Simulated scan of single mutants.
Amino acid sequence: MTSSSLSRVTTPPLSTDIAGLAALFLTSGVTHLAKPEVFEPLVPNSLPRRRELVYASGVAELVCAAGLLHPRTRRLAGWASAVLLVAILPGNVQMSANHGKRAQRKQTTGAKAMFAGTLARLPLQLPLIRTALKAAGR
Rank of each mutant, 00 (worst) to 15 (best):
5 S>F: 14
5 S>N: 09
6 L>T: 10
6 L>H: 14
7 S>T: 15
7 S>H: 14
7 S>E: 15
9 V>M: 11
9 V>F: 06
10 T>K: 07
10 T>Q: 13
11 T>S: 12
12 P>T: 09
12 P>G: 04
12 P>A: 11
13 P>G: 02
13 P>N: 04
13 P>S: 03
14 L>E: 11
14 L>S: 11
14 L>Q: 10
14 L>Y: 12
14 L>V: 08
15 S>T: 15
16 T>Q: 10
16 T>W: 13
17 D>I: 09
17 D>M: 10
19 A>R: 10
19 A>T: 05
20 G>M: 04
20 G>C: 06
20 G>V: 05
21 L>F: 09
21 L>R: 05
21 L>C: 07
21 L>V: 07
22 A>K: 03
22 A>W: 11
22 A>I: 07
24 L>K: 00
24 L>W: 14
24 L>P: 02
24 L>D: 06
25 F>N: 04
25 F>Q: 05
26 L>A: 13
26 L>H: 13
26 L>P: 00
27 T>L: 11
27 T>V: 12
28 S>C: 04
28 S>L: 10
28 S>G: 11
29 G>A: 06
29 G>P: 03
30 V>I: 13
30 V>L: 12
30 V>H: 07
30 V>S: 02
31 T>E: 02
31 T>Q: 03
31 T>P: 00
31 T>W: 11
32 H>T: 02
33 L>M: 04
34 A>G: 03
34 A>Y: 13
35 K>G: 01
36 P>C: 07
36 P>K: 06
37 E>F: 14
38 V>E: 08
38 V>F: 15
39 F>I: 04
39 F>T: 01
40 E>M: 12
40 E>C: 03
